[in-house]
Simulated scan of single mutants.
Amino acid sequence: MKAHLAVNAVEMAVAHRGYPRGVKVHSDRGSQFRSRKFTQTLERHGLIGSMGRVGASPLTG
């Protein structure tokens, strides 16, 4: 996945939800979610980025 797809998804979600500041956006550790474009988009909308630990299984936390 490219960073612009992740950015577009955040932009659409923010527009649909009415600009919810302080909301956590949880993602995996993919490069698109660590990109400058993505992190700047989160900051611009007052969102908080959150990532899972390396090697963490969704079943074990």
Score class of each variant (00 low, 15 high):
Q32W: 08
V7S: 02
V7T: 10
R21K: 14
K37D: 14
V54F: 12
G46T: 13
R44G: 05
K24P: 14
H16A: 11
H16I: 11
G18W: 03
H16E: 13
K2Q: 10
G49K: 08
R53G: 14
S35Q: 02
H45S: 10
L42I: 03
M12Y: 12
P58K: 13
M51V: 06
V14G: 02
P58V: 15
P58I: 13
R29Q: 04
I48N: 00
R21T: 15
H26G: 00
R36L: 07
L5C: 04
H45A: 07
L59P: 01
L5E: 09
A56W: 15
M12C: 02
T39F: 00
A9D: 10
Q32K: 08
R17N: 10
L59V: 09
V25T: 07
V7Q: 05
D28M: 05
K2R: 03
L42C: 07
R21E: 14
A9S: 08
R53H: 03
V23F: 13
R21Q: 11
L59I: 14
L47I: 04
V54W: 09
F38C: 04
V23T: 15
A56P: 00
V25P: 07
G30C: 06
M1N: 07
H45D: 07
R29V: 01
T60E: 15
R53Y: 09
E43S: 08
F33I: 09
F33Q: 06
S27C: 09
K37S: 12
R29S: 01
S35G: 02
V23Y: 12
A3L: 01
A56K: 10
K24F: 15
S35K: 02
T39R: 15
S35P: 06
R36A: 00
A3I: 02
A3S: 13
A56D: 14
M12W: 11
S27V: 03
E11A: 13
I48H: 07
K2H: 12
V14E: 07
A56H: 10
A9R: 06
S50Q: 12
R44T: 06
Y19N: 15
M51P: 03
G61Q: 12
G18D: 03
D28Q: 01
R29D: 00
R44K: 13
A15Q: 06
T41A: 13
A15D: 14
H45C: 05
R36G: 03
S57D: 11
G46C: 06
E43H: 06
R53F: 04
T39C: 08
Q32M: 12
R21F: 12
G46N: 08
F33G: 06
R21S: 13
P20N: 08
G52Y: 10
S35H: 05
L5M: 07
Y19G: 04
K24C: 07
Y19C: 08
